[in-house]
Design a protein around this nucleic acid. Structure first.
Lengths: 338, 338
DNA sequence: CTGAAAGCGCTTACAG
DNA sequence: CTGAAAGCGCTTACAG
């Protein structure tokens, strides 16, 4: 039904090799020949068959982003960075969702095995070192985003410092009973943020208490969801004595936490983590991650590895910035219940 | 570096045709032969080369979702539906982002031309009939999601009825100066929602006023963003006389609108549209779209067309449901400014 | 139930 | 600057 390189070659009165060269932007084609071929190709609506190209050339001009797409707003920002970077390189992007149902590493391995792409961007997957080491044998360029490992290039965020800044800010405002609204304790970002929280307490000689690590019951997406934030905040608001500030481990959880405060009419100053696009609009004080830049940086790394095949892995870590809005303010009036 | 079908054939002492049959689940292979092949394949970590398979078989077992990924929360829900449906069919999904920068139809056409997949899911693209008609000549299964056209299968939502319900509810609560917080007037969903809004006014003999269609200035994603909602609401709150209720065309815009109300300390009852996962937590009354079901339904349609090649196009339209939360309540106390 | 062989639509040394 | 030809790794009638 669609035309092949033979059709074009015949119609243009050249060999298929020449048609191929024209489409691969080879320099060595006489301009007049090139034009002749292009004219025919345009008229017939010719498109090279991607599978055939891939098979013959062993190239694919394509990278894949593997990510838990469900964990959303955060990824959106990252994606923008990736795409803007790609646009300037004429490389295509495929996005594949890694579902939370089955083991992430199995899904990743299955995809990489099939060698669809020239490189892979593993976003927020937080595979462990052992799992990542399995991937090494495929000898394919891989960059980690929002993650770290010695095995591959990585672009990460200083979660420890971010959590430290947030907690330290709360301490500087005079709060002492500061809880951390946490999530799955085994998740890497949580471990790091907890460490930063502890570090800030330590600096000010405030004792760490296990009971001040509060988690919701809903563990979807490792507990990074609204409901989990809501549940945890309900618990916090019944503690006695009631904590006087909370460091919340993600903006999306803070959305749930805010609901709990509205419902009960109680309000505690809160700082969270991410700085999503909605956060500005709901007044969240938060630790800002440069998601866009992280996306483009990781992509740049991946491309350079594909093109130049560097030897040792490179790592970039972005530093946090505190954005103060209304959620961390001391409640002057009692908040009205809704 | 990686093994080919020849390596497996040789190691298993069979022909490559037999190996191929084993991997394609052909019935006609003796169980003992199958086992022998599988054992070797497992040991050598063999994976068929996808491009070669695609080239030789002219099949791909793969569908592609084309969507403006940036328009996010809404898509997340849809995606879950798609994936759950796909899982039961052993078909792979690729997600390709259609950027808002350049013409959507060009991007779509470019992808379809390359015939990566056996079928395409066009989500929230709102191409016009003329553009869609261009796609017909590629003779490939296409389903539209969150969109409608006579050319292709479609799963859509009754935007008119949804807007009608929301507006009618506000009227039933005694409001009369009801504005519509709108977006790009050329966007299909906006046109339909405006029509539903008008229909409700008409039913109650409330005159429609052009000045009650209020839009923000930020037109990213057709104005479906927080900032645009914020801007529009600021305008609304300075109108004289001030409107007494607002029908907001999307939840994400409502997030911005709520900020405007908090800032000014003024509050107007509001109903919006979508029912995103955050909406419950920020108390939005809204028109609920069954996004998950829409996703799986559209996928089911696409697969059946791929497998059976139906003749005429089928269309499913989902009906709205009103979810009433706190945002549509009459403000009793003046809202405190933040 | 299995194999030999043609063919899918390209790319790329090689030769000229 | 261009062409003939081999080859990429599979699938699938066809024959047995």
């Amino acid at each position: 039904m669609s035309h092949t390189i033979y059709d074009i070659a015949k119609a243009a009165g050249v060999s298929i090799a020449t048609v191929s060269r024209v489409f691969n932007k080879a320099e060595s084609v006489k301009p007049s020949t090139r034009e002749k071929v292009m004219k025919v190709a345009d008229r017939l609506g010719y498109q090279p068959h991607v599978y055939a190209q891939g098979l013959a050339s062993k190239r694919k001009n394509r990278i894949m982003m593997l990510a838990p797409v469900m964990s959303n707003y955060f990824l959106t920002e990252i994606l923008r960075g990736i795409q803007d970077c790609l646009a300037s390189h004429d490389i295509e992007l495929n996005i594949v969702n890694i579902s939370q149902d089955s083991r992430a590493i199995d899904q990743v391995e299955n995809i990489i095995k099939k060698s669809w792409a020239e490189g892979y961007l593993l976003v927020s997957l937080h595979l462990n070192e052992e799992e990542l080491s399995c991937l090494e044998r495929y000898q394919v360029p891989i960059s980690l985003l929002d993650d770290y490992s010695s095995y591959f290039d990585s672009v990460s965020f200083d979660n420890v410092e971010g959590a430290f800044l947030a907690t330290d800010y709360l301490i500087s405002r005079g709060y002492e009973r500061i809880v951390i609204l946490s999530a799955n304790p085994n998740a890497i970002p949580i471990r790091e943020r907890l460490a930063g929280y502890k570090k800030a307490l330590e600096k000010s000689k405030i004792p760490f208490r296990e009971s001040y690590v509060v988690t919701g019951d809903n563990m979807e997406r490792d507990g990074f969801n609204e409901q989990s934030g809501y549940e945890a905040m309900r618990k916090i608001l019944t503690m006695d004595p009631m904590p006087d500030a909370v460091f919340c481990t993600s903006d999306i959880k803070a959305v749930g936490a805010q609901k709990a405060m509205r419902e009960t009419g109680l309000k505690i100053p809160l700082i969270s983590f991410d700085n999503l696009s909605i956060s500005e609009y709901i007044g969240l004080s938060t630790v800002s991650q440069p998601m866009y830049r992280m996306g483009s940086e990781a992509t740049e790394m991946l491309i350079s590895r594909i093109r130049n095949g560097e030897s040792k892995s490179r790592h970039t870590q972005y530093e946090p910035e505190l954005v103060i809005r209304s959620s961390s303010e001391k409640p002057t009036v009692k908040h009205e219940a809704v």
